[in-house]
């Protein structure tokens, strides 16, 4: 609102803490917030708590009709990100990019634990 544009970055469990901020500030005030969530809890998770909270993410976003895209590969990422950020500002709506382990390789600690 002050004239700068920013990106908020968090892990899945960080996203789980901001439901109220999304639902009662960002959505009703029509703030074009750009969120990046590194997805943990799927594709090789060793912590059941993280696996459970990962399942809350998309249903929460869908319940408040917030646009979200799961980024899985380098080829499609530039198009998705570029168009979605533009759309966020033209429609004055938030957008969430979920970084899948398919894109990031996942948690390096998981590789050690899952041998």
């Amino acid at each position: 609102m002050g004239g700068l544009r920013g990106v908020v970055m968090m892990q899945t469990s960080g996203f789980a803490l901001i439901a109220n901020a999304l639902a009662s500030l960002i959505v009703p005030y029509q703030i074009p917030a750009v969120l990046v969530v590194s997805e943990r809890g799927t594709l090789g998770e060793f912590n059941i708590g993280q696996a459970t909270v990962a399942r809350t993410m998309r249903p929460v976003l869908d319940s408040i009709a917030v646009e979200h895209h799961t980024l899985t590969d380098d080829a499609t990422m530039p198009f998705i990100v570029d168009k979605s950020i533009k759309q966020a500002f033209t429609t004055q709506s938030p957008v969430v990019f979920i970084l899948s382990p398919l894109l990031t390789g996942g948690n390096p600690l998981a590789a050690a634990k899952l041998k």
Binding site: M1, G2, G3, G6, N20, A21, S24, L25, P28
Partner: peptide, 22 residues
Amino acid sequence: NFYMLGSMGLACPIALGVALAQ
């Protein structure tokens, strides 16, 4: 003036953002 109707606890973070932007 900005009136925060929901998001209890976030007035200071909102103000911080405005302070950094301006």
